[in-house]
Amino acid sequence: MTAAVRTEWLKLRRSRPPWISLLAATIGTAVGGLFTYISLHPEQARDLGLLGDKAQLASLEPGWAGYFGLLAQIVAFGGSLIFGLTMLWTFGREFADRTAKDLLALPTGRGAIVTAKMATAAVWSLLLTGYIVVLGLGIGAGLRLTGWTARTAIDGLVRIAVTAVLTIALTSTFGLAASLGRGYLAGVAALFAALFSAQVIAALGYGAWYPYAVPALYAGITGRADGPHVVGYIAVAAVAAASLAGTIGWWQHADHHL
């Protein structure tokens, strides 16, 4: 297992996706900071025209508590994309580069390789979350946000961390889809299907039970009072476990022609 994790880490470290995801996380956090700045300075926001109007429509709660909520929402929505793409790339590339066949008859089992892939993508996503938090704290300090207390900080950081874990757990689906589809396309399709269905189901009022809507609801995208139902959390865990088991099972039992 250690060998598999080390190989996956080397592959990830030397490829482009980590740098692209780092750039996307930077942009996402910076945009969050910009929105917060606009909500703190509505006069200047009006001077910004359309962007200012949209920032006002977002009705951001100024201060650290609201800002942590915004960071959690960035992790929930942006993370679904960035973490999801990292996960599906980890699997899809083996088919795109035709390297999957080199992972099939080794003393390191296919189950260990799949688990290492998911673990590596998950760890990278957690590191990105840490980066978003650090960058976000720096931006928040630069904006001179009010209302910093230890309690606010701990609540905010826990909220971001739990949102990240929920989001990352669901990305295993995209690893499964990329494996089943033997390439990136199926993974990308599954990612967009998950994002789109979460929006629709949440709009219909059933998001609290729907796993792909749970991270954003937990992050407070519709307000903290509308958090997920316990069934929603169980569904996230079930989807993650089923996706991991399904991916391992597929790698172990499918016919591999590539």
Binding site: L10, R14, S15, R16, D97, R98, T99, K101, D102
Partner: peptide
């Protein structure tokens, strides 16, 4: 097996 493959960025 068949055409050789390798990780292109490595």
């Amino acid at each position: 097996v068949e055409t050789p493959a390798a990780y292109p960025e490595l």
